[in-house]
Design a protein around this nucleic acid. Structure first.
Ligand code: FES
Ligand code: FES
Lengths: 137, 137
DNA sequence: CAATATGATACTCATAGAGTATCTTATTGT
DNA sequence: ACAATAAGATACTCTATGAGTATCATATTG
């Protein structure tokens, strides 16, 4: 899978934060997005560590988006929750394949990966928000 | 991952069969390709069921490739061992997402998937063999 | 100082890919 | 005929990872 659940949830949470533009608790995010609370918290904590959202403890506290939606690339989120986009791991007997440099298949898979990365990195939260507004989803 | 181990092993086995053009036992494939014997057998059985190789029991028996390398597309093998090429499953709460039709992200992932399929379906065993000859791998 | 909210961290649970084990059936050479 | 060889069929285990949980500590507010 190109997009894991955690990445997907992060997109939804950030989308909500970007549209609301007010400090929002994990509890509220959980309620409105119907994502399990402990999982949501974990995701928000990751976003906090990476500086995508600010957080404040205590009553009335919560999360606030820090970057503008246009600056948040999907690939950045994928990187946070899934590591590098990778469709091309030839692991032969637990170690990375020594033929990778010359391998034809690896080259072709690399092409696909590159294209995927290109498309994904052009998608920002801004696009996601405006497109979903247009479609009414 | 786009290419699973089983698919990869199948490619190697078919490559060997195509180059040798003689009936070859799973034992020999195991030896020369250093792929675990029971796993190799399982893979060859699948290839047999799908009509890519013929098989013959008894001493001296084994497998023989049935199609010409140019006819064996990588996507066919992926289909056999991994099912349809799919980078785009939005499963929300165990059921397929109802927004798939209108979803922007889904559309973009679909584009990536389509491109991947296009590249992969253009790769046949023939290409793999000739390219690996050229590189001496 | 009690209630609320996040930070940190360790844990469980389910699934799927990778690989194994075993029994049955067909073919061959002596 | 029969032992040896090889594939067919099928059920099983093992392991890594993604998804989700639990529980502590710490900060903030009224
Ligand atoms: S054989 Fe390992 S990268 Fe191609
Ligand atoms: S939200 Fe499910 S396909 Fe986009």
């Amino acid at each position: 899978m190109l997009i894991a659940r955690s990445t997907d949830y992060a997109v939804r949470a950030l989308k909500y934060l970007a549209e609301k533009r007010e400090e929002t608790s994990a509890a509220e995010l959980t309620r409105v997005l119907s994502i399990p609370w402990p999982f949501m918290r974990k995701i928000m904590q990751s976003l906090g560590k990476k500086g995508l959202v600010s957080s404040r403890k205590g009553p009335g506290g919560g999360f606030r988006i820090l970057k503008s939606p246009g600056e948040i690339k999907l690939t950045e989120l994928i990187n946070i929750f899934q590591g590098p986009v990778c469709l091309n791991e030839c692991i032969f007997k637990k170690k990375v394949c020594p033929h990778k440099k010359t391998c034809y298949l690896s080259k072709k898979l690399g092409e696909i990966e590159e294209h995927a990365y290109l498309v994904l990195s052009k998608i920002t939260l801004k696009e996601i928000i405006s497109q979903s507004r247009a479609k009414g989803v």
